[in-house]
Design a protein around this nucleic acid. Structure first.
Length: 449
RNA sequence: CGGAGUAUAGCUCAGCCUGGUAGAGCACUGGUUUUGGGUACCAGGGGUCGCAAGUUCGAAUCUUGCUACUCCGACCA
């Protein structure tokens, strides 16, 4: 992409409404624009990152055996009357009426609707296990939206729902999502710790929240520091096999949110030097809730004995629009964002330091073509402006690498490569530049960890 | 919903106390500058001062009401 033709409205100054660093940087980097309290427009750069995050989630969900579909944002109230949640959910749920006076709601979650999909189509235990998910906009009329897209009213969420014959199999489904989540966050460069959590309005008796430690997090959390260094299950993990050893290993170390903390147990289980009491950002939550919806809504299958039984369900959510600020909170410096390659809006910034200089322009054009051919997602800063502004833009929007082309280096037939994260610079010949950067970036894409 | 605050140009803000023709920097447009960390200079465009009512000869400024937004708290991906 040529920057001169791209829509990238970066801000030199910080808009005053933004308090925390991720919100400030998302506004300054031209990723989002607020349209009302808790409602954001996603500008091209922000949307590009959102799509990359989405692709990783989809890939890991699919690997874990879940099937992607799409349900509407608006839902009929009758479905929610069946589960009893139409009256229980409270003011957080946005209710609307259509022209015929029918009650609808903008979905805050989809347990009811997925159950309706399931019961209309699945009748036999032979069709289980089943896990269906979608990535769709949700609306929760939060009392106080804040921190940009960290807590917005409209937000994009991946929500998966598992259906199994009994509790034992449902726990297996839970474990598959648990493992998939560990991998998903890791691929985005996040260290997310599963913690015992309250089940809230979703219901159920087993739940973990996945928490990224950050000072700006909204939840107080307590955990064993050994969890921070725990290796993540590899791409070879067998989702058809027994995953309980992995889950047991993770859950054997103490970790709980402030709602669930038992101080005695925390202090008994965790040696003092490993106790972490910190703030954290909740980037996902998994629930097992058994027959809570299947029973009242009649989601039943015939088992091997010919009996009709309610299926056991679980649900598994990841807030995509919250993941972006979470990644930024975990990875930034004074100059701006530092994206991991896996979710970076562009992998490389090609910077022409001297617009108008014939040699520089020609060299950049040539490199730009070569880089694209090498499969690098490159943003070419061809704007007619000074070098300082280009450096500042590249640092701010956080591209992992910069290829700097200026008259000084060209004299020796060289260009400079800067690593955004470490600040390290190296020089490479013009001829070898494209291949050189490809060799650096490719292993960092983390398709397979 | 309780508490605190803000609203003046695209952004950051001054002006308000003490009423008298609406300002600065950045951004934008045209030029000069050809620049290795937001270069310098010249010229220019852009605002019914959140909305409404009131006081006044006269309101961005004083009064009242409303709205929007932000922050702190209780709730949540």
């Amino acid at each position: 992409m040529r920057l001169s033709r791209y829509f990238l409205p970066v801000l030199k100054e910080t808009p005053k409404e933004a308090e925390i660093v991720s919100h400030r940087l998302m506004l300054r980097a031209g990723m989002i624009k607020q349209e009302a309290s808790g409602l954001y427009a996603w500008l091209p750069l922000g949307y590009k990152v959102l799509r990359k995050v989405q692709a990783i989630i989809e890939q890991e969900q699919d690997r874990a055996g879940a099937h992607e579909m799409l349900m509407p944002t608006l839902q009929p109230a009758d479905l929610w009357r069946e589960s009893g949640r139409y009256d229980d959910y409270g003011k957080e749920m946005l209710r609307v009426e259509d022209r015929h006076g029918r009650d609808l709601l903008y979905g805050p979650t989809n347990e009811e609707m997925i159950t309706s999909v399931f019961r209309a189509n699945v009748k036999s235990y032979k069709d289980l296990p089943l896990n269906l998910y979608h990535i769709q906009w949700k609306f929760r009329d939060e009392i106080r939206p804040r921190f940009g897209t960290m807590r917005s009213r409209e937000f994009l969420m991946k929500d998966a729902y598992s259906f199994d014959l009994d509790k034992e199999n449902s726990i297996k489904a839970y474990n598959r999502m648990f493992v998939a989540y560990l991998r998903t966050y890791k691929r985005m460069g996040l260290t997310a710790i599963p913690m015992q959590a309250e089940t809230g309005p979703i219901g159920g008796d087993l739940s973990h929240e996945f928490i990224v430690l950050a000072d700006t997090g909204e939840s107080g959390v307590f955990c064993d520091s050994a969890l921070l260094d725990k290796p993540i299950p590899s791409i070879d993990v067998d989702y058809d096999g027994d995953l309980s050893p992995i889950v047991d290993e993770w859950t054997s170390l103490y970790a709980a949110t402030e709602d669930m903390i038992e101080m005695d147990k925390f202090e008994a289980d965790v040696p003092e030097e490993r106790r972490i009491a910190a703030r954290g950002i909740e980037v996902g939550q998994v629930f097992y809730f058994g027959e809570k919806y299947s029973e009242p809504m009649g989601a039943k299958v015939t088992n091997a004995d010919g009996e009709e039984v309610a299926v056991h369900m679980g649900s598994y959510g990841i807030g995509l629009t919250r993941l972006l600020p979470a990644i930024i909170e975990a990875s930034h410096d004074d100059d701006g964002i530092i994206w991991p390659v896996s979710v970076a809006p562009f992998e490389l910034g090609l910077i022409n330091l001297k617009a108008g200089d014939e040699t520089c322009v020609e060299t950049c054009q040539k490199l730009y073509g070569e880089l694209k051919s090498a499969g690098i997602d490159v943003l070419y800063d061809d704007r007619d402006m000074g070098a300082g502004g280009k450096f500042a833009t590249a640092d701010l929007i956080g591209l992992p690498f910069q290829m700097i082309v200026g008259p000084r280096g060209l004299k020796n037939g060289e260009v400079e490569i800067k690593d955004r994260k470490t600040g390290e610079r190296s020089t490479v010949s013009i001829e070898a530049a494209a291949e050189h950067i490809r060799a650096i970036i490719e292993p960092l894409r983390l398709d397979t960890i």
